[in-house]
Simulated scan of single mutants.
Amino acid sequence: MSSQALLIIDYTNDFVAEKGALTCGKPGQEIESEIIHLAEKMHKNGDWVLLPTDVHKPDDPYHPETKLFPTHNVRGTWGRELYGGLKEWFDTNNDDEKVRLFDKTRYSAFAGTDLDIRLRERKIDTVHLVGVCTDICVLHTAVDAYNLNYHIVVHEQGVASFNQAGHDWALDHFQNSLGAEIVTSI
Rank of each mutant, 00 (worst) to 15 (best):
E30Q: 10
Q4V: 03
F162C: 00
E121L: 10
G20F: 02
N163L: 09
I8Y: 12
M42N: 03
E88Y: 04
F102W: 08
T71Y: 00
H128T: 11
S2C: 07
Q175H: 12
H167C: 12
R100T: 14
S2H: 10
K44C: 03
G85Y: 06
K104M: 13
I117C: 12
E156N: 07
T92R: 15
D95H: 12
A111F: 15
Y150Q: 03
E40I: 06
G25T: 05
V55N: 10
I36M: 08
L22N: 02
Y83P: 03
I31G: 02
N73M: 02
T66M: 03
S33Q: 13
D95L: 10
G28V: 02
P27V: 02
Y62C: 09
P58C: 09
G166T: 08
N163T: 08
A165N: 11
D96Y: 05
Q164I: 13
N93M: 10
E88D: 14
P61L: 09
T77I: 10
N149K: 07
V159W: 01
I182Y: 02
F162T: 04
I36K: 13
V132H: 04
V183S: 05
L22Q: 07
E121W: 11
A5F: 06
T141D: 00
L139E: 11
S185I: 12
F15W: 12
M42F: 15
A145D: 10
E121H: 15
F162H: 02
H128V: 15
Y62E: 14
I136G: 08
P58H: 04
Y11R: 01
G112C: 06
Y62S: 15
